[in-house]
């Protein structure tokens, strides 16, 4: 049975009813990222401190003197969410040990967009993960610098048209392959790495809960559909996330202590990427040859992750 299709029946029993990211924020209509943040907060619960990078989620949630955050939250700058989170973790650890704060376990979470994680923030993130802080880092990847106006990042997929890598008479738009950030995190040997998407809310919540239970650093890469930047109808945000998974463009998997597992939501047979591309303005200019070239890459990458899940699964020590 597909739980997502029976969302009304099952989800309310499984999801924390308390809203820790409140309504009234300023996100665009159809923003899947803000939905992911809300679900993340539900999964994390109250005993959480969040350190956020500059970006969409920061500006829509914290316009002084208002705030959407019901959990302790700090924003410092763009590239340092992981470093700030590591300091929060260190501070709370020392204070708890010395009896200066309540003796309760608090999970520290760093969060940023794809630019704040994969480009400008990758050094701080790498450092924090390598140092082994007890923290979760969540990358909300909407595949470009949406907050500043849809400029390309290293998370922008091949062929997408953005405002700094636009499609033109002699350009297909983005000319580079999306940086494989989850694998970079796997290479840090952190105990838990997962990819997720709010179009699969139960899978996403379960992964956040798992990351929360890990003592040490964990990384979640959350695919976050941005109707504004992708130029797709806002009511299609959830479907677009599902299409990304169903076409293999964004595979859902988790890596626990080096062991790979594909999420049960992953399709047995991939849909053609054309189904995913055709509904988005950012891909509309692509020729059949260009789409075929990207399709080939998606097939190869999907094969790689399937092989990893096959040969690097738990038990294959």
């Amino acid at each position: 049975m597909n739980l997502v299709e029976n969302f009304d029946l099952y989800a309310p029993r499984l999801i924390n009813k308390k809203e820790l990211f409140s309504a009234g924020h300023r996100a665009c209509s159809g923003c899947a990222e803000v939905l992911a943040v809300r679900l993340m907060c539900k999964a994390l619960g109250e005993n959480t401190v969040i350190a956020s990078a500059t970006g969409c989620m920061e500006i829509v949630s914290s316009m002084f003197p208002t705030t959407a955050w019901e959990v302790p939250w700090i924003h410092v700058a763009f590239e340092n969410a992981a470093a700030v989170a590591s300091g929060v973790e260190a501070g709370l650890k020392a204070l708890r040990r010395k009896g200066k704060v309540d003796d309760r376990y608090v999970k520290v979470v760093g969060m940023a967009g794809d630019g704040g994680t994969m480009d400008i923030g990758i050094q701080a993130l790498s450092g924090a993960m390598e140092r082994g802080h007890d923290m979760i880092y969540v990358c909300f990847d909407n595949e470009a610098y949406m907050n500043t106006g849809i400029q390309r990042s290293s998370g922008t997929p091949m062929g997408a048209s953005t405002t700094t890598a636009p499609a033109g008479k002699v350009s297909m738009g983005q000319k580079t392959w999306k940086k494989n950030m989850p694998e970079i995190m796997v290479a840090h040997n952190v105990p838990y790495v997962a990819t997720a998407c709010p179009s699969y809310p139960l899978d996403f919540i379960r992964k956040i809960e798992k990351a929360k239970s890990v003592k040490g650093p964990s990384y979640i890469h959350c695919f976050s559909v941005c109707p504004t930047g992708w130029r797709c109808p806002s009511h299609l945000a959830i479907s677009m996330g599902r299409l990304a998974v169903e076409t293999g463009v964004f595979p859902l998997f988790e890596v626990e202590n080096g062991h790979y597992r594909l999420s049960p939501d992953m399709p047995k047979k991939l849909r053609p990427i054309r189904d995913y591309f055709k509904a988005q303005g950012r891909f509309r200019h692509l020729t059949d040859e260009e789409i075929s070239m990207i399709q080939e890459r998606v097939n190869t990458e999907h094969k790689k992750i399937t092989e990893k899940a096959k040969y690097l699964k738990t038990g294959n020590e």
């Binding site: 470093a83 300091g87 929060v88 260190a90 200066k100």
Partner: peptide
């Protein structure tokens, strides 16, 4: 905290100070 740069040193110290440390 043996950070990986001075930028992260100040970032981490800001985070820690914000907890009251």
């Amino acid at each position: 905290v043996t950070v990986e740069s001075e930028h992260s040193a100040m970032s981490a110290v800001i985070g820690a100070s914000a907890t009251g440390a």
